[in-house]
Design a protein around this nucleic acid. Sequence first.
RNA 1: GCCCGGGUGGCGGAAUUGGUAGACGCGCUGGACUCAAAAUCCAGUGAUAGCAAUAUCGUGCGGGUUCGAUUCCCGCCCCGGGUACCA
Length: 886
Amino acid sequence: MDYNFKEIEKKWQQYWADNKTFKSEIDHTKPKYYCLDMFPYPSGAGLHVGHPEGYTATDIICRYKRANGFNVLHPMGWDAFGLPAEQYAIQTGTHPAITTRKNCDTFRRQIQSLGLSYDWEREINTTDPKYYKWTQWIFTRLFNTWFDQKQNRGRKISELPIPAAIKNQGETTVQNYIAGKRLAYYDNAQVWYCRTCKTVCANEEVLNDGSHEKCGTREVERRYLKQWMLRIPHYAERLLGGLDQLDWPAGVKDMQRNWIGRSTGAEVDFAIDGTNKKLRVYTTRPDTLFGATYMVLAPEHELVDEITTSGQREAVKDYIRNAALKSDLDRTDLAKNKTGVFTGRYAINPINGAKIQIWVADYVLMGYGTGAIMAVPGHDTRDFEFAQTFNIPIICILDPKNADADLRTKVLNGEACWTEDGAYINSSNKELGIEINGLSKEDGIMTVTSWLESNGLGQPTINYKLRDWLFSRQRYWGEPFPVIHWEDGEVSVLSDDELPLPLPEVEKYLPGESGESPLSNAGDWLIVTDKNGRKGRRETNTMPQWAGSCWYYLRFTDPANNKEPFSKVAENYWMPVDLYVGGAEHAVLHLLYSRFWHKVLFDLGIVSTEEPFRKLFNQGMILAFAYETASGSKVPSDQVEEREGKYFSIETGEEFRQIVAKMSKSLKNVVNPDDVVNNYGADALRLFEMFIGPLDATKPWTENGVKGVYNFLRRVVAFFGELTNIADGEESKETLKILHQTIRKVSDDIRDMKFNTAISQMMVFTNHCYKVGKVNRETAVTFFQLLAPFAPHLAEELWQLYGNESVLSYHPWPIFNESFLTEETFGYPVSFNGKARFKITLPIDLPNSDIEKAVLADAHTNKWIEGKSIAKIIIVPNKIINIVVK
RNA sequence: GCCCGGGUGGCGGAAUUGGUAGACGCGCUGGACUCAAAAUCCAGUGAUAGCAAUAUCGUGCGGGUUCGAUUCCCGCCCCGGGUACCA
């Protein structure tokens, strides 16, 4: 038999489609397994070789699970709202829906050419009004939910208690009060705005180099705009706590924990000298209060104006004006020197009555804590730097007993900053009954906190870095908000029977310069009149791309439902997702957002699980070789030739260095999966992507590597396709042993997602078959089953060639039999002082005393003990023998 | 700075409740087949020395624990990712 992969793959893909082999339905007689890929954005560039990596991994698991009796849900869909289709519309006038449909068709064709076992009847598309109807529906739920701090959960807005004092002030106050509690709210906010994309974006979308995640430019700035926000920080504690039970990579959990940024500390009130005002600060180290020698307000702090003395007024005004002009990047640049201005005002340190200066400085941020700090320059590097610049007193209250003498002296004299633990000094005030000298850090924090609390000066506080999620975008190609802004100021959402609110046709897709959305050109669509003649205007922003992906995994459980987002029965049966595979780039974006929505839906009784994704796996990126000159500038791959393992310019002969880089058009090193499928087949592509290295590692693509696995498949065909290689009768012991080792290794490795070593074991098995020349029918057929999850087309073809009538995809997995692995002898490595020298084959279960005798009697041993004495003989049964000589 | 990963042949990578380092694949070398080439099959392939048996060295660096360390401990170096005046 020839390996005609084109014919084989076409034939089986057709068979699976015609027979709906992978259609999944609720079946309570089987355990369920929900295996999900992060659905792609269908870009115009088509599938990238990175896509099939995760898809193949989940497909192997799904096929393995089916063979093990699981009812598997394995769906695919399109996260199809997004910028490129809109940019294309701006340039060409082509409606994004047309571009999107075309791209989805390409993606579907490409994915289907890989033989992935998706249930295509469940395909969804976030831009389909039948889908985004329910995205809008969930938004109205967020709008109509408030967070009950006491019960630590979201509740219906109708259950929100209105305090009498609010009620007494009339309906407007009540409505404002309610609006202030909704999880989705519309308000003025300091937001990130990208000048390139002409839209606002979320905190999470602004990368640490100040660039915008979507477009990569650094044209991101702060603006004050009225926007839709979601109160995700209410769920901070639940989002944090939920991580513990999840089977997720530790790194992703850590990233989410860091992003949520919980810190415990205390709020402390400082009296402001000469006023009856108080200044409240947040600190994680209330125990260092004795060392607080000055205070700092953020430039935007509301008290700045009030407390500044007339003598300092001009200086403070100047400073704030300059701070406002600075870009955020400048302001947060650690390398720059600290700046600030004295307000002229003093505060009273409550723990020792000291009069301390109040400053304004931009190293304190308004968005965290209270926007004001107590500064402890002796033990905080930022405060130390500032105090040194402005000659503010520095008091040491933590004696660095274990530091070297020079440093310790400096610290004690306030000439150096000490941020680690030390013994408290100067930390007692007999008059006020507070003393922490001699205590541990934990006790110090506790003692000061409870002293503050009992004196009405402060209380323990928890703070989070997590901020409200900016949820609106000035874009056309997104879900319209089901929202009306009425002329009397009321903001309302559409009722369920008014959904979906479809995207209107517009002539201009371009957003305005000053932040107005393309939908503001939508004419009649914009204007609404209610039954009382009240006029309103529809929301013209659209939802961010995250909205559709926040709940798509739920829709897959019941994708055609037009009465509800999904039925309770389907959700109950399929959720949670048992395995979720995708790239690590969503660690704090999609994965945090969807957990948040899921928890809200859980609180409202719409979903039955607290967490959506039980197990998460991040596949690594597939890179490619690229070339650079000695000075490090990159060279397109088509200008490079190889000679004897070195790389040279075709034109100039200059030698280049081979490096590993992301595939990119400019480097001309992009690999198109279509070409690979054409030249080597889908099975080879699948196999190679799994064989190249561990699934979670980044690894480079090599054409020769594909040839390697292609050759393996060809060898499989050459051996098993030739029925003269198949013998009758009993299988040899040796072959049975390797076969069962392979069953065990492949099963364990699929379970552990170590596909590269599973494949190498199948290669070992095949090499063995070539060596022995003949195997029996049962051995061959068992091997096809092991191969099936990886190379399903070829496995089905061989399965059929051997006369099996039913399709292999649901045939039970082979059973591993330990008894074929038992050996009668073991080849012991004999080592001297830990160095293995030779081998000795001995019966298994030989008593240690006999092993010792046998080793000492062996001719090789003499050489190593000659002239030395044996100190000890260590025998680890069926592992190793070590002789210690002196 | 802080938090995660990671460092093993020419290359991708195997192997860890501490027990034969380098499975499998690529590349390379030699052989068979062929008029020849390609493809394929067979053999070899960590480095150094040696015809060879074999010996010495060898898992980023320096120590330590142990009969025995890629694996455990301490101290460093380098690379990748995340994050950052978060008080």
